[in-house]
Design a protein around this nucleic acid. Structure first.
Lengths: 244, 244
DNA sequence: CGGTTACTTGACCATTCTCAACGCCGGTGG
DNA sequence: CCACCGGCGTTGAGAATGGTCAAGTAACCG
């Protein structure tokens, strides 16, 4: 299996030297069992992570125990960066499947910023992309119905899994419980269940035990309340002035 | 009036040279009338902005016309950065008061990344801070009641205005309409109205025409559903390895 | 002033939540 | 190999938070 480097190259291609640097990152792997935390809110900021394999949820806990999942990370994602701005970790990272992460000491970020403007630009743009994703999710959760939220999430998930070559024929692994979906979309489990049922009764998706299949993605996109933003890829790089 | 540079220095202090660079940015000012757009979704990515004065809302439009405000920007904020990752602008930026912005061509971002690692680090951390803010807002909107959302937003607003020295004695200008609040928090105007009413009936806040006064901030914080994250300031800078 | 915009309030409605029970499936231990 | 158990999914009935529609009032502005 190819390591999932697609997210590292979407804005700036990696030179041979840079690929070496990345190899250094992935030399150090840490396996995380399903439902185990990588780190929790309030802990010291020890590292950021490159997600080699598996799914990881990022969530915030409210005082009364309610929880909001703010992002479902997929292979190739960089995790834990927002906490770099905080004095202690601001999001709980929890493996949603068995996962493999590569911990990177925060110092590597400074090193890249200091020594490798190309990678710095890639990292910076990647971060902006994450902001856009958060803005989108906020729009679903704040301004759409349960059904629309579910559709938006499934479409987003599909497209991101597709970029990681994890979609086969419109179908993909789906390890999230309905409780996870609820915490992600701001709904209760019960209502997620009813809404999912409604969704596959329309014939747009098909659920089996742990897979999800989108039967008609065109129609699903037509039913979505938002239009997915178009990411710029290498153009973004040249627009900001392609520092070499 | 001092220009609001506090956000530019929260992670990395500006050297004399760097202050010169910033002076170059603010040489070019553009006044924007209340309720006028700075840019709209779908337009080409022409610039990012430094907000000198006034409030600016960033919002996403859904297909059916519903709107989600994802951020209320205050003086000192940098605007429009998420769109750098997109092939066309992904958020509508609209002045919520008469405002003054300084447009920066996207190229300056590449230039900073290429030539000034210190400022690049400051910018990078600033961006991570914005991600944290978005995560927080998502948690309010997804997982709390109308009253809790309102409280969380008012507290956040208070703290950010305070950092910009715009709070006098617990009270500050409040130019948002109840419609804005609704679009920001995922509620209808009617329900915002009732909830605001309920809030000042408890005596925790006081609204006059266009000002807001928090009468007991301790108690208001106690009533909030989330704990505000602690930002790291200069420590973040040393943690990532203080590239010079 | 007249007109527009924002704010208020009431009555009614519905999406979503709560509470509760039950069934299915996989895992584990006797 | 079977019986039990726990987690997850499913379903129903009733409640509630928040939405819709509609009308009226107060504030602002030319």
């Amino acid at each position: 299996m190819q390591p999932p480097y697609h997210r590292l190259e979407e804005f700036v291609s990696l030179s041979a030297d840079e690929a070496e640097i990345v190899k250094g990152w992935v030399a150090n792997k840490r396996a995380v069992k399903r439902y185990r935390a990588i780190h929790r809110e309030g802990e010291p900021v020890a590292a950021v992570y490159f997600l080699m394999d598996g799914w990881v949820g990022s969530s915030l806990m409210l005082r009364d125990g309610r929880r909001q999942i703010v992002k479902v990370h997929l292979p190739g994602d960089l995790l834990g960066f927002p906490s770099l701005a905080l004095s202690s970790v601001g999001e709980t990272l929890e493996a949603l499947t068995d996962a493999v992460v590569c911990p990177l000491p925060p110092g590597v970020v400074g090193k890249i910023l200091a020594e490798n403007p190309r990678m710095a630009a890639g990292l910076f743009l990647s971060t902006q992309k994450e902001r856009v994703a958060l803005m989108q999710q906020l729009a679903w959760v704040g301004a759409t119905s349960a059904l629309e939220r579910l559709i938006a999430f499934l479409l987003d998930l599909h497209d991101r899994l597709d970029a990681a070559h994890l979609v086969k024929d419109g179908s993909f692994e789906f390890p999230l419980t309905q409780q996870h979906l609820g915490e992600l979309l701001g709904l209760t489990t019960v209502h997620v269940n009813r809404t999912l049922r409604r969704l596959d009764e329309t014939g747009l998706v098909e659920r089996s035990r742990s897979r999800m299949r989108i039967k008609d993605i065109q129609e699903l996109r037509a039913a979505a309340a938002t239009v997915a933003p178009l990411f710029a890829g290498r153009d973004a790089w040249s627009r900001i002035g392609s520092p070499s």
